[in-house]
Write a protein that binds this DNA or RNA. Structure first.
Lengths: 207, 207
DNA sequence: ACCGACCTAGGACTAAAGTCCAATTTACTT
DNA sequence: AAGTAAATTGGACTTTAGTCCTAGGTCGGT
């Protein structure tokens, strides 16, 4: 369940680059894993991996931009840092538009690279935290019965119990029961909390 | 009060580029204003301007990136499209990191440029809409007295009137009065609405 | 000194929501 | 067929919140 320990995943077809990267990153205490191709990385990566990705733009077979695209398609959300010897403006623009953390040209200054890595790791921590929060939230919401979910929509829309009852063709008494169960299942101590929880989960209000 | 009509602001030191841009943009019905330098643009621009900015990266005096920086400092939030004849990867990365919509190299394809402009205008519409919403919201909040603002914090934290009363050293009765005034001033028909409004305004809950 | 805001507060209710209790009807699973 | 989760409802209250109306005290500005 808990994501793997954060690491820097280096994807480069040049063995000497992989070696140099590994040495540099390890020297500052960062776990590193290297891959000789995008294919090799994709075959092993899972959505549980955390950390960041450092990838060469131009490689035989699948290039860095294609890899970035494939990651999105597979729900693998690792911040990407591009590294390249022959970068072009259009390529860097495409990469940045696609959400890359940085786009560096070889030879790259050690400090510049480490700064980018730390920024990427920080971004991933934030993303993973948000992700975990959302998952916990939806897990709680999954405990609601269909009817309770309907009632929830009325509550967070500011409707009175009697209004919800009329709209759902039942009585105020029943709504109160559902309401109490909702508060209990979602562990909300107040309506204010409930509204914020629903807001975070993106539950739509009525009308 | 209402922002000026959206236009495309072209900043380029080359008169022929300004002319060409003006012709192209006008041909698709877009209002255009041209400037020969970043300085000239900054001297005239106000936060009310809406639309987008198309700026040459390299110009005598202040360059495009500096202009982008100055805009932020002056609360002028126009989406920026960079145009350049001699773009470098680091420059494009810096521009994109700073939030540029696109970074295009001359000679640029008409359609590519128009696509970027439309995207920028769309982004600006969204930003201006959000901005207006936030302003209206803070305007309403400004109607609250200091005491009402304190009470509001308790309400959106899910506290009972009696709890707020105890904490503020007053009576439940008084809290009810404040509460009613808050709902009226903020034009909220329900607690759910109030919580969402406060959330949007970024009002902190207690503890 | 007077005005207008702001904060205060009591009386007297009405209405809405929450809390115990217990109970019935379905729909679906084992 | 028995068991279970879900949805339903009633009774009997207690708590909270909201609604009128009225009204005292404080303060800063004219």
């Amino acid at each position: 369940m808990s994501p793997a320990k954060p690491a820097v995943y280096v994807v480069d077809d040049d063995p000497s680059v992989r070696g140099a990267m590994k040495r540099l990153l390890k020297s500052v205490g960062l776990p590193v894993k290297t891959f000789a191709s995008a294919r090799e990385f994709l075959d092993q990566a899972t959505p549980e991996w955390s950390g960041c990705l450092m990838v060469d733009l131009r490689m035989p077979g699948m290039g860095g931009l294609d890899l970035q695209y494939q990651l999105n398609a597979r729900q693998i959300s690792l911040p990407v840092i591009f590294l390249t010897g022959y970068g072009t403006v259009p390529a860097s623009v495409r990469a940045m538009k696609a959400g890359a953390v940085d786009f560096l040209e070889k030879p790259v200054d050690d400090q510049t690279l480490l700064d980018a890595v730390h920024k990427a790791l920080e971004r991933d921590r934030g993303a993973k935290r948000d992700q975990a929060e959302m998952q916990a939230l939806h897990q709680r919401l999954a405990a609601l019965t269909p009817r309770e979910y309907e009632v929830l929509a009325f509550i967070i829309s500011g409707r009175l119990n009697k209004q919800a009852a009329a709209a759902l063709g039942t009585t105020e008494k029943t709504i109160k029961v559902h309401r109490a169960r909702i508060m209990e299942k979602l562990r909300c101590a107040s309506l204010a909390e409930l509204v914020r929880l629903a807001e975070k989960a993106g539950i739509k209000t009525l009308d």
